[in-house]
Simulated scan of single mutants.
Amino acid sequence: MGKKNNKGMTYEKAGINIKAAKNSIDLSRADIEATYTNEVLADLGLFASAVDLKNILAEYRHPVMVTSTDGAGTITWVAKKANKIFTAGWFRIGYSVAAHCFADIATLGAKPKVFLNSISAEKINPATNREILFGMSQACQEADCILGGGETAEMPDIICREQYDVCGTAIGFVERDKMIIAPRLIQPGDVIIGIESWGLHLNGLSLARKILFKSFWQRLSLNQQLKKQVPGGKTIVQELLRGMPNYGPIILSLLNKTHHKDWPIHGLAHITGGGLKDNIERLLPEDCQTKIYKSALPSAPIFSYLQKKGKVSDEEMFKTFNLGIGFIIIIPHQTTPFDLISRIKSFIRQKGGLKSFLIGEIVKGEKGVEFII
């Protein structure tokens, strides 16, 4: 190979620091291993993770695997810019990416068993990675899910300006005859319970950023803009980086009760990209329509602020943002006890500390969602 040439090109000079990726895993080892059970067979740091499924699948007569992959999206831009004035941002992103995937698979009734992650950046910062993985670990522990491993990649020239891309995948299981396939169950007369959101969650951030920061350079520095207070008493950065609740464990606890005949559920939806309109519509049979009472939606000042500041139409708001509702439950109304709604709302408050509201109903008609006063 010849003599060592200190002036020659190296992988590190090309923008890849292998030590940084290794250091980030070492920093997070305790957080990751805190999610491990006896079913984890491969040590952290090997080429793949391994989970013994014998005991896990023994819980099911006919197990169905359910998966979901999602990412943080452009909220990472805010976390990077606000890193010095709001240090909890990366933790909340990691937590929310995992919680987002858990909520997705909970809509079919599935319990997460393994969560995988992918963290890519122009330049890996071990401390930032540790915060992201710490957030994921916390969400996994709440959901009784193994943080099985993932990918950490530096991608100079592809990801620019020291930005991050954070994604995750949840793998879970559900008993086949307990799956909630909403279009097969929903019928006219059903009612809709909405569980409150914490704010924007991980969706609609590109539009929100354009509205909030489109003119900051004309008047204020970015840090000054991030610290600006918005209606509701929080600053812009606090609103954008609030993250989301971990709906999955709450919903699964509810399903453990609702498999009894006096607690029936016809549909579940996680309100993500597409807002209230699209995420409810995807549940509906062709002959059912949803009526959402606008007056029943919780007051969420950040959304009215964004609408006014950005001159956003009602239609655009409904198909972009969650408008204060992060998860919905559809139940039969005419064939169940009158107090079922109150019992479900009380259960959600007790398990997750979240408020819920009766926000709409299912009627016979052409498939779609209508927002009424």
Results as ranks from 00 to 15, higher is better:
Gly45Asp: 04
Pro332His: 08
Glu131His: 03
Ala269Cys: 01
Pro231Met: 03
Glu316Gln: 10
Ser68Trp: 08
Pro156His: 00
Thr128Phe: 07
Lys80Asp: 03
Ile85Lys: 02
Leu207Gly: 01
Tyr36Glu: 02
Thr152Ala: 04
Cys160Pro: 00
Gly248Pro: 01
Ile171Glu: 01
Arg29Phe: 03
Ser49Val: 05
Leu284Phe: 02
Asp144Gly: 12
Ile25Pro: 08
Lys367Trp: 07
Ala21Cys: 15
Pro126Arg: 10
Gly135Arg: 07
Lys364Ala: 14
Val166Tyr: 10
Leu147Met: 11
His62Glu: 15
Leu46Trp: 08
Leu205Met: 15
Ala121Asp: 02
Tyr60Ala: 04
Leu53Phe: 11
Ala30Asn: 12
Cys140Glu: 05
Leu284Asp: 02
Cys288Arg: 10
Ser221Trp: 09
Glu122Val: 02
Met155Cys: 08
Lys7Ile: 05
Ala34Glu: 11
Gln289Tyr: 04
Asn6Tyr: 14
Phe102Gly: 04
Gly45Val: 04
His333Asp: 12
Glu12Arg: 14
Gly194Arg: 04
Ile18Ala: 13
Gln334Val: 01
Val64Met: 12
Ile171Tyr: 10
Lys178Trp: 08
Pro112Gln: 03
Val369Pro: 06
Ser28Met: 07
Ala48His: 13
Phe86Val: 04
Leu27Ser: 04
Ala121Leu: 03
Arg130His: 15
Ile159Gln: 00
Ala182Ile: 07
Ala42His: 08
Lys81Met: 10
Lys13Gln: 07
Glu154Pro: 02
Ser24His: 01
Lys81Phe: 12
Ala79His: 07
Lys294Val: 13
Glu59Val: 00
Tyr95Gln: 06
Lys351Val: 02
Thr67Tyr: 03
Tyr36Gly: 09
Lys84Ile: 07
Val369Glu: 08
Phe347Gln: 11
Tyr293Gly: 02
Glu286Met: 12
Ile119Ser: 04
Asn55Ile: 00
Gln225Thr: 13
Ile236Arg: 13
Phe347Glu: 09
Gly324His: 07
Gln289Arg: 15
Leu220Val: 13
Arg282Pro: 05
Glu142Cys: 03
Ser96Trp: 05
Asp104Phe: 13
Gly204Ser: 00
Cys101Glu: 07
Met65Thr: 14
Trp90Ala: 01
Gly353Leu: 02
Leu254Ala: 03
Gly168Pro: 08
Leu354Pro: 00
Lys123Leu: 07
Leu108Trp: 12
Pro183Lys: 09
Arg161Ala: 01
Ser206Cys: 11
Leu283Ile: 09
Ser49Tyr: 13
Ile16Met: 06
Val312Ser: 02
Gly243Gln: 03
Thr320Asp: 00
Gly73His: 02
Ile119Lys: 06
Gln218Thr: 14
Met136Thr: 04
Tyr11Phe: 14
Arg219Lys: 15
Cys288Phe: 05
Ala170Met: 07
Pro249Gly: 08
Ile362Arg: 04
Lys228His: 13
Val174Met: 06
Leu222Ile: 14
Lys319Cys: 12
Glu122Gln: 01
Met136Val: 06
Ile124Phe: 05
His201Glu: 13
His259Gln: 15
Leu283Asp: 03
Asn256Ala: 11
Gly248Asp: 05
Gly273Cys: 05
Gln229Thr: 13
Gly368Arg: 06
Phe134Ala: 15
Pro231Cys: 06
Thr107Gln: 11
Gly73Thr: 04
